[in-house]
């Protein structure tokens, strides 16, 4: 039953990817899309649009979406807090601050340049959050982790704002990254991100069983022979890799990471061995559909995907939140 569901979602995802290749400021027939993928013709404008612009964008959407969904499911499991989003480890704030510094102080102005600062900032920040959250009694308890993450986010966001207030040009660049968008991302970004995402995904799936044990509480998990500390560390590592990479690729689209695990949980129940793959496939589905909608509603311009995911994701999320089952975690 759950396997069939996965197949259906995978098929829908393939359909969404095809739509993402075909639809835009200039619609391309599906036949031409397939032709461009299999046998690209460098003289055809339509083929060029697909191979140079829409294919990289779709790949980035698939990768970033899957990463956000997976990271969200893992972080909600680790912190046992249904409100935790992948940004709770400070990933967005860290990426944001480093990107602002790169733009403002180092004068880097293209996306490919500052993506790496974003990743570095995300990684450093989440290590910091995890360390602070683990100091003291009881190690990284869910409440301490959530508070530490939110507090570090507060501090870094303030620094970011301080830089932005003094530097209008940096603010001008940053506001477009902050909205969250897939436009203008090249294949190079996807290729360079792939190793981080693969390792992150492997760690996430490896944690599935441990997350099930952690859901029962630390004491029960320990009595099942689970090393709570190691389990949390591995899971947190997965979130850092996945969310840090995805955030620097597409901007802070955390809402997907927050919403999708709840949607997935309403289908699969609390078992992370199902919850993780469902989240990984549902998230890019939402992201690609949102991206296509963003390209259609404001032709010939477009609305950034971050705005569309919020506007179509929120009603689904609210509807789900009204169901009794969701509140349990």
């Amino acid at each position: 039953m759950l396997t069939a569901g996965l197949v259906v979602i995978a098929a829908a995802l393939a359909g969404a990817a095809l739509l993402s290749l075909a639809v835009g400021a200039r619609d391309v027939p599906f036949g031409t899309v397939l032709h461009a993928l299999v046998n690209p013709d460098p003289d055809s404008t339509e083929h060029l649009i697909i191979t140079q612009s829409r294919l990289p964008r779709t790949i980035v959407g698939l990768l970033a979406g899957a990463a956000f969904g997976l990271a969200g499911a893992v972080i909600q499991g680790v912190t046992r807090n249904p409100l935790a989003d992948p940004g709770i480890l400070g990933v967005n704030a860290g990426a944001g601050l480093f990107i602002v510094v790169a733009i403002s102080l180092l004068g880097i102005t293209n996306l490919t340049g500052y993506v790496w600062f974003g990743f570095l900032g995300a990684a450093i920040t989440s290590v910091l959050v995890y360390t602070v959250g683990s100091i003291g009694r009881g190690g990284a308890t869910p409440v301490k982790l959530a508070l530490a993450g939110a507090a570090v986010t507060a501090a870094l966001t303030s620094f970011t704002t301080a830089v932005l207030i003094t530097d209008v040009d940096a603010f001008d660049q940053f506001r477009f990254w902050q909205v969250g968008s897939l436009a203008g991302r090249g294949t190079d970004i996807a290729v360079q991100s792939l190793p981080f995402l693969v390792v992150g995904a492997l760690l996430a799936f490896y944690s599935a069983r441990a997350l099930n044990a952690l859901a029962l509480g630390d004491d029960v998990a320990t009595s099942f022979g689970q090393n709570v500390l190691v389990a949390r560390l591995i899971a947190a590592g997965a979130v850092v890799l996945l969310c840090g990479t995805a955030t620097s690729m597409a901007g802070p689209l955390v809402f997907i990471g927050l919403v999708i695990p709840h949607i997935a949980r309403s289908i699969t129940g609390p078992d992370h061995r199902w919850l993780l793959p469902y989240s990984m496939l549902l998230a890019p589905l939402l992201l690609l559909i949102a991206d296509v909608i963003g390209r259609v509603v404001a032709r010939p311009g477009e609305v950034q995907v971050g705005i569309v995911t919020a506007i179509i994701g929120a009603p689904i999320f609210v509807a789900l939140a009204r169901r009794e089952r969701l509140a349990e975690l």
Partner: peptide
């Protein structure tokens, strides 16, 4: 949860 959902929409509109 409903609050976070609504808040996200509002933040997006602001951005």
């Amino acid at each position: 949860l409903v609050g976070i959902g609504i808040g996200t929409v509002l933040t997006s509109i602001t951005s």
